[in-house]
Design a protein around this nucleic acid. Structure first.
Lengths: 220, 220
DNA sequence: TAGATTGTTAATCGATTAACAATC
DNA sequence: TAGATTGTTAATCGATTAACAATC
């Protein structure tokens, strides 16, 4: 086990997801080797940053040739923990929740949507594609039974914290928050914010500035 | 015009969207004053950071009492450029694009969805709620006619760059990219990435680490 | 071999935090 | 007034970049 144990900084983790997308594209095109300079140019970074970031992986390049794409891609997946299937529940069977449930890209990237939940009794029992909608009461039971690791919050802003609490109580290990609300979770549960409306507000600011772009890695 | 002209760092802009959400909630509850310490505790920051961030605004607090919530909320909206209506186009009338078009939260936060676009001829002419679906050919004309400032990319990953190019050519000033792809735009166009699948991959990493949380401000 | 590219160390840059004087 | 909280300056911390020796 040579895996580095040290926690990577958040900016590095975010760039890893970008590297992954880029090298996957290259592999699909049949390219076999890539240099830190190639990656840097494509993503608007310095080659130094790219090499430093790859340092965090259990992976080595080759002098003069760069990085072998197939192995590098795999190293990214492995480091992120995205090399196996992850079971996901979506809370909120409104427009957004249903769209996520039907979003093929998730499955393609090994995220399996195992259940939808909604507080609205009229929606319970319906199906969205293959996925059944359950009431909130079933959350603890199904999280356990279906080994659900991640809960996605796609409910109205006002209910976001209550849903997060319910997901934590049910035992998920990670939460993706899609609402505008700031949500708090205990330290043993990981959370990433994907607040779409907030992203639009951030975008407005960068548009104000020189009609210009944000610094290299906004965040997404 | 006392507005500070200097560009804020990306982490500050991202926190601004969080402050905004928090103080809006307080205002709705009828609270009138808030201290940097209150905000810091709610959002998991230091009061020092909060005060430094507010420094970037054209706004002053009051010794001993803190910040007047109504005025502070407004200052956040103004600094972000979110104090007026912004016209938005969505490209991609699939599940995700339609869900966004129907997502009431956008309108509530002054983003007006003015048009949907899709390459699929079968979808053209249909309506999603009140919003009509147009073909890609109509993009340049409608961006001009409807004064569309922002384009949201909600198409399959493989078409993301082509759509971005089309939006830039049509003259939008900002782009929100919802696909997994990394997309490049010229410097005069602002872009924010809201790559949902990448956010899930980032989440997987934080789950690996102590089953733990990311550092204070992951991005979003 | 010669040259290109990695991996790593050290320097720089920028953001966060601490400390405290100003102030209402 | 006394005390609480801001606004600001200086110190710290961490991330990015530059430089270069190692190496295939």
């Amino acid at each position: 086990m040579k895996e580095p144990i040290k926690k990577m900084p958040a900016p590095v983790v975010q760039r890893l997801t970008k590297y992954l997308t880029f090298v996957r594209e290259l592999r699909e095109k049949g390219v076999e080797w890539v240099s830190s300079q190639d990656i840097a140019e494509a993503l608007g970074l310095t080659s130094s940053t790219v090499r430093q970031d790859i340092t965090h992986l259990d992976f080595s390049g080759t002098s003069k040739r760069g990085y072998e794409i197939k192995r590098l891609e795999w190293a990214f997946y492995r480091e992120l923990g995205a090399d196996r299937i992850t079971n996901v529940a979506i809370v909120g069977a409104g427009n957004m929740g249903r769209a996520l449930a039907l979003h093929g890209e998730l499955e393609r990237q090994r995220f399996m949507i195992c259940a939808l939940f909604d507080a609205n009794a009229k929606l319970i029992g319906r199906k969205v594609g293959e996925i059944e909608v359950f009431g909130m009461d079933d959350l603890p039971r199904l999280v356990r039974a279906r080994k659900i690791d991640i809960g996605m919050i796609a409910v109205p802003t006002a209910s976001a914290q209550a849903v997060a609490d319910a997901l934590v109580a049910a035992g998920v290990h990670g939460i993706l928050n899609l609402t505008l609300a700031h949500v708090r979770v205990p330290a043993h549960v990981a959370m990433v914010e994907a607040r779409l409306v907030a992203s639009l507000q951030e975008l407005l600011y960068w548009m104000k500035i020189t009609g210009g772009a944000p610094p290299p890695a906004p965040r997404a």
